[in-house]
Design a protein around this nucleic acid. Structure first.
Length: 578
RNA sequence: GCGCUCCUAGCUCAGUUGGAUAGAGCAACAGCCUUCUAAGCUGUGGGUCGGGCGUUCGAAUCGCCCGGAGCGCGCCA
């Protein structure tokens, strides 16, 4: 089933272009920039005029003449320098809404070549508290995971824990320095572990000897020293517990909880492959793979440090090998901030040279850092970064102010109110992040994460709740949905907006860009609100009209709910008021 | 020093890859609850798209130069 107007129009245009001897490459329409003039526009004549050395208006006119014969097209006009403006017949649009309402995927198609894609996001570190800087990777990754699954890909997501580097040695060294032994380690909780890490971090920055000690312990740990391993295991599991709790609040999920440590065994294989292929060399005591520098200097991949340890280049390469061999990955996508761009260029080039991921697409989706008002990575006033927990609590507190207290509304006790609070607060936080283009980064405005008006998650939840309320009333009055009939301009605009959903999802999928969905979801909710204010549903007067509007409203509800789901945001049944 | 990314309304951001009159949200102002949830709707003001030159019938978008910001540049991850 194809419910997409663009596809239909592109096909007819293609036939017309072919018939007229025009390059069909330009036979495409897009949603009109001028809603006052048309539903769709084709700019092909303008582009074509250049190569064909013809007047664009003439080309456009000949295409328009053919288009006018199409039964589903109401009007065609050539405007300006050669824009072809197309308006569809109301009945055609309406019939498509009826079909869309009966399709369980709401008119959304699936990808042409379903394959297995491994997603690497989150990447939290052991012994470090999760702060607002960790928000983006998790929230974006979760959304992409859902989008990829929805379009038919087979997804495996991996949190890829930072559990194996020098920080592990640093924290063990710090504990030893303070306790003289590792025997107390097993009683330490996450707060204590984090404290040790903070102190270790400060110490190693100014004390070269401490740093050296940390490196030694790291090496011993990686070599399999039993005492270190046991202690490390505890640090790791305490951290994972805390990280899981954090992600659970945000509904961020992973199939695998692999970490850098899991790649350790395979690191040796990577080195072996490099040596067999004779692409590695020893330089200043380290074993490296030199990379083509092209127009810019590119540092080499370092497989083995001069102290004998592996680097994050090696673990990332080993991880790629594991994902290809064990998980049968056909595409691997990483989500990190832009500071790691060079790192992944190096790793991908290394993987290419090693031949460990033949025919596997390796992608690094870069997102901008979360910045403070000064344009630098976000810090709170006291210089630290804000905990994720604190952010969520703050947003929840704000939500509570607009909700009734437990027991004030029938059926809404402590648990129900708390759930609603969390759903709304998390929607506010996640949407605030997801509405931004991922590549560009954004300025962190604390207040925005506890805002529920305008372009926010709760605004969309509210639209859904209002529709639910209408649907409940309709059911109580025995009114059902019926065939769509478009009369008011608000109905027509809403229907055209609904018809865009497939395109929006596919674009978000191919660009790995959830903000495309966030933006659409918001504008759809907005169009609905306009419609809702202008067109009474239950009190439409005519019961066929009421049934038509009810179907449109329900369709909006379903599309909005699906879109929020793809963003990783829940839609509560109701939005109560204090 | 070299490289990457960015500069659009008072603030935060879009702008579907070169098209028509550059759009939202917030903030400001003026209206709208005896009718389906006002977390809403309607309207107003606000711009030499950092600056300059160029390519083009046509530039926020492409190229060059200048100014400003952020990030990254072999043994931290």
């Amino acid at each position: 089933m194809n419910l997409l107007f663009e596809t239909t129009l592109n096909k007819t245009l293609s036939e017309i272009f072919e018939k007229l001897g025009l390059d069909t490459k330009f036979a495409t329409v897009k949603v009109s920039d001028r809603a006052d003039l048309s539903d769709f526009q084709c700019n092909g004549a303008l582009a074509l005029a250049k190569t064909a050395h013809k007047n664009p208006r003439e080309i456009a006119a000949s295409v328009a003449t053919e288009l006018e014969k199409e039964p589903n097209i109401a009007t065609v006009s050539v405007d300006g320098p050669g824009f072809i403006n197309i308006k569809l017949k109301d009945d055609f649009i309406a019939a498509n809404m009826d079909k869309m309402a009966q399709d369980e995927r709401l008119g959304c198609g699936i990808t042409e070549n379903p394959h297995r894609v491994v997603l690497d996001y989150g990447g939290p570190n052991v012994a470090k508290e999760m702060h607002v800087g960790h928000l983006r990777s998790g929230v974006i990754g979760e959304s992409i995971q859902r989008i990829e699954r929805f379009v038919g890909n087979d997804v495996v997501s991996d949190v890829h824990l930072g559990d194996w580097g020098t920080p592990m040695g640093m924290i063990l060294a710090e504990i030893l320095r303070s306790d003289g032994t590792l025997s107390h380690v097993f009683s330490y909780n996450i707060a204590q572990i984090t404290e040790f890490y903070k102190r270790a971090n400060i110490r190693c920055k100014e004390d070269e000897e401490a740093k050296e000690q940390a490196r030694k312990i790291t090496a011993a740990l990686q070599d399999g020293d039993e005492q270190y391993r046991a202690a490390w295991q505890h640090l790791r599991s305490e951290s994972v517990k805390a990280i899981k709790a954090n992600y659970a609040q945000l509904d961020v999920n992973f199939d695998l909880w692999w970490g850098e440590s899991d790649a350790h065994q395979t690191c040796g294989e990577i080195v072996k492959i490099a040596r067999n292929k004779e692409i590695s060399e020893v330089d200043n005591g380290a074993e490296i793979i030199r990379l083509e520098e092209g127009n810019k200097p590119k540092p080499p991949v370092i497989l083995i440090k001069s102290d004998g340890g592996y680097t994050y280049h090696t673990t990332d390469l080993a991880t790629i090998k594991m994902r290809v061999d064990q998980l049968k990955a056909q595409e691997i996508v990483y989500f990190t901030d832009s500071r790691q761009a060079l790192h992944f260029e190096q790793v991908f080039e290394g993987a290419e040279k090693l031949g460990i991921a033949p025919n596997v697409e390796l992608k690094h989706i870069v997102f901008g850092t979360v910045n403070g008002a000064d344009g630098k990575p976000f810090k709170t006033r006291d210089g630290g970064v804000m905990n994720l927990d604190t952010l969520i609590e703050m947003s929840k507190d704000k939500v509570r102010q607009s909700l009734p207290k437990a027991g004030e509304v029938e059926g809404y006790g402590e648990a129900e109110i708390e759930k609603l609070t969390s759903q709304i607060a998390v929607a506010a936080i996640k949407f605030q992040d997801l509405k931004n283009t991922i590549s560009s980064g954004y300025v962190f405005e604390l207040d925005d994460f506890a805002k529920f008006e305008g372009k926010t998650g709760p605004y969309i939840q509210y639209a859904i709740a209002r529709i639910n309320s209408v649907l409940r009333k309709a059911e109580a009055n025995g009114l059902n949905v019926g065939n769509v009939k478009l009369e008011a301009p608000e109905e027509r605009a809403l229907a055209l907006k609904l018809a865009q959903v497939h395109n929006v999802v596919m674009r978000a999928h191919s660009e790995k860009e959830p903000s495309i969905i966030a933006d659409y979801t918001y504008t759809l909710a907005q169009q609905f609100s306009t419609f809702y204010n202008a067109c009474p549903i239950m009190n439409a007067g005519d019961c066929n009209l009421a049934a038509s509007r009810l179907r449109l409203a329900k369709l909006v509800r379903d599309v909005l709910t699906l879109m929020l789901n793809l963003l990783g945001i829940e839609a509560p049944e109701v939005m109560l008021k204090a």
